[in-house]
Nucleic acid binder design. Structure first.
Length: 114
DNA sequence: TGTTTGACCACGG
DNA sequence: GCCGTGGCCAAAC
């Protein structure tokens, strides 16, 4: 395969994000011990080659839809979130603190089992 | 093979 | 509370 292992881990974590909730790059990077949040972004950048990865549920630490421009259409990310009941305004997730989903907190440190 | 960039984050001013 | 800088790792040029 032409994709490194941690890419699959990022995809798997993103797939575990419940509908109607969101997470951020830092949480994923820290949970997978990638070493830097940018790796999460790089992995998500490659997710365009992979299906079943709800990348619209991944935003930056401010709750902004930083990756919307990488979607097929800039508005698709917001559309998907709103379709799941997440209020999005001015390209930012409303009540982001309440909708935030932490993999380390929900899945636990001994995840890895997939 | 060295430099630049990237869907970021934390810290300091 | 906003802006600039550093750090982090990997891939593209």
């Amino acid at each position: 395969m032409d994709q490194p292992t941690y890419y699959d881990l990022v995809y798997a974590v993103v797939r575990q994000v419940p509908r109607g909730q969101v997470t951020n790059y830092g949480a994923i990077a820290d949970f997978l011990a990638l070493g830097s949040s940018r790796m999460a972004g790089w992995a998500l950048n490659n997710c365009i080659h992979t299906d079943n990865v709800p990348a619209h549920r991944v935003v930056n630490r401010k709750g902004e839809l930083s990756g919307r421009h990488h979607f097929p259409t800039p508005t698709l990310m917001q559309e998907l979130l709103e379709a799941e009941g997440v209020q999005v305004e001015n390209d930012r997730v409303m009540e982001f603190d309440r909708l935030f989903w932490s993999p380390a907190k929900e899945l636990g440190d001994d995840w890895e089992a997939f």
